[in-house]
Design a protein around this nucleic acid. Structure first.
Lengths: 197, 197
DNA sequence: ACAAGAATCTTGACAATGACTATATCGGTG
DNA sequence: CACCGATATAGTCATTGTCAAGATTCTTGT
């Protein structure tokens, strides 16, 4: 599985393309990403990736799926050891923001608005899987009576939206990663207590 | 001021370019936006826009500034008539989400992570101006004792992040505009009451 | 009024990219 | 072992962003 690097002109492209694409995304941003550039970096011909990705959008779709898978793993890891609900939420939020800080370009690709219809379903599945753990965290707490009654969908989306919004602010530079790190606990506390006095 | 359409080959480009760019953004999305295409649509030579926008990024920067200006106007209008804090927040949130629904591509340009350093300051200024009204809404309420004590920065960012996150979900199709519309009141209520029981 | 200079627009060119077609090579299967 | 699909290559094309001169319009100082 890991023995064939590129003896000939064959190998496990697709995986290599995805890996390299994520690297470029992390190191140089979205618009530094080109199919030809990746092919060049991997030592294959400029049209080789087209055998695995019909389109550049297909590559973006695959990157989005992979991104949500990894984000899901990160959040699962953060929620492996359970404490109080607040502690769990802080850990979850910190993990989300760390991911956003480390992969800002990937995150914006994940939430881009141009996924093909066919890939949309696959992405939606990956999203559901990624957010399954955190939403379960809330619905469980709701079942135990630690969280307000109400549509779990609304509650979950509100929390996730707050984190994604903060991640967007970090990604666009309006909030520094340090600021976001320092704010996580207070933001979660604000979400828990609510605004009203 | 509005008399010179384009008798000759001169006119008020820059404004025309910005206007057309926003149209393309709204109608066809970000990657359908090309300098040459805009020039073509406006009947000028392909390099004409370069006199007003050094770079394609410079155009994006200008679009971001214009976007935050318009977003600020929209929010100001929504907060023109004040009611209860909750009502005001709902009106504000609805206006934000309407803007996001009507201009998804523009919103992603506004929060893109590649603003030149020089333009960064101008954008930051526009952002501050746009969010001045909503944040004042919260700090005023805080001063009147209607909102929890605590760092106003954190409280404001939490609310704005929740809206921006929801806007992102709408923009990427994970939440439909209808759903977001139906959720606004509940989301604001959730933010007001908090999660904890 | 008018010449000088700045601002704006045009034309031409170039390299890079995404996408397409035709062709060659590899791997597995009957 | 021949066949065929999957995979990779080479070649080509239109489009795009960017740059460099050069032309045209507007402004400004005198």
């Amino acid at each position: 599985m890991t023995e064939t690097m590129s003896r000939y002109h064959h190998g496990d492209l697709r995986a290599a393309v995805l890996r390299r694409a994520e690297e470029v995304l992390r190191e140089s941003g979205t618009d530094a990403l080109s199919l030809r550039g990746i092919a060049r970096d991997l030592g294959v011909s400029h049209a080789a990736p087209s055998a695995h990705f019909r389109d550049k959008n297909a590559l973006f779709d695959a990157l989005a799926v992979a991104g949500f898978r990894r984000l899901g793993e990160v959040m699962d890891a953060a929620l492996a050891t359970r404490g109080s609900l607040t502690d769990d939420l802080v850990a979850f939020a910190a993990a989300y923001l760390d991911f956003a800080t480390d992969n800002p370009a990937l995150l914006s690709v994940m939430f881009a608005r141009k996924h093909s219809e066919t890939a949309g379903a696959e992405i939606a599945e990956a999203v559901a899987a990624a957010f399954a753990h955190p939403t379960a965290l809330l619905t469980d707490a709701q079942a135990r009576g630690e969280v307000v009654d109400g549509d779990p969908e609304v509650i979950g989306i509100t929390v996730l939206a707050a984190l994604q919004g903060l991640a967007t602010f970090v990604g666009s530079g309006f909030v520094t990663p340090e600021q976001s790190h320092g704010m996580v606990e207070d933001v979660v506390a604000t979400l828990m207590r609510g605004l009203a006095r």
